[in-house]
Simulated assay, not measured.
Amino acid sequence: MADKQIKVTLVRGLVNRTPNQRVNVKQLGLHKIGQSVIVPDDPVHRGIIQKVRHMVTVEEAN
């Protein structure tokens, strides 16, 4: 597989977050604390992750 992928895990909840932060977490496909998704490592997803970096952890997907 030529495209790199990253694993994003939600580690903080959505309570008391701004509407934009909630939308960004939903765009990543995350709903619950502890849930993980694998997304392509591209500038679009990196930008979304940057906006909610205090709420997620990022690691390389195998």
Rank of each mutant, 00 (worst) to 15 (best):
M1T: 11
M1W: 11
A2S: 14
A2V: 15
A2H: 15
D3P: 11
D3F: 13
D3T: 12
Q5S: 11
Q5A: 09
I6R: 00
I6D: 00
K7E: 12
K7S: 07
V8Y: 11
V8E: 07
V8P: 04
V8N: 04
R12S: 12
R12F: 15
G13Y: 08
G13E: 07
V15I: 14
V15C: 07
N16V: 10
R17W: 14
R17Y: 15
T18R: 09
T18C: 03
T18V: 12
N20A: 11
N20P: 03
Q21D: 13
R22D: 06
V25S: 00
V25T: 07
V25R: 00
K26A: 14
Q27P: 01
L28C: 04
L30Y: 05
L30V: 05
L30S: 04
L30H: 04
K32H: 11
K32D: 10
K32Q: 09
I33S: 00
Q35H: 11
Q35W: 13
Q35M: 12
S36G: 06
V37N: 06
I38Y: 01
I38N: 01
I38R: 00
I38T: 13
I38V: 15
I38K: 00
V39E: 01
V39H: 01
D41A: 04
D42W: 02
D42A: 02
P43V: 04
P43F: 09
P43Y: 07
V44S: 06
V44R: 09
H45I: 08
H45S: 05
R46P: 02
R46Y: 03
R46D: 02
G47R: 09
I48D: 01
I48W: 06
I48A: 03
I49N: 01
I49E: 00
I49V: 11
I49D: 00
Q50R: 13
K51M: 11
K51V: 14
K51D: 13
V52Y: 10
V52H: 10
V52I: 15
R53V: 11
H54V: 06
H54Q: 09
H54G: 06
H54T: 12
M55H: 09
M55Y: 13
M55V: 09
V56Y: 09
V58P: 01
E59G: 08
E59H: 07
E60S: 10
A61E: 07
N62T: 12
N62E: 14
N62Q: 13
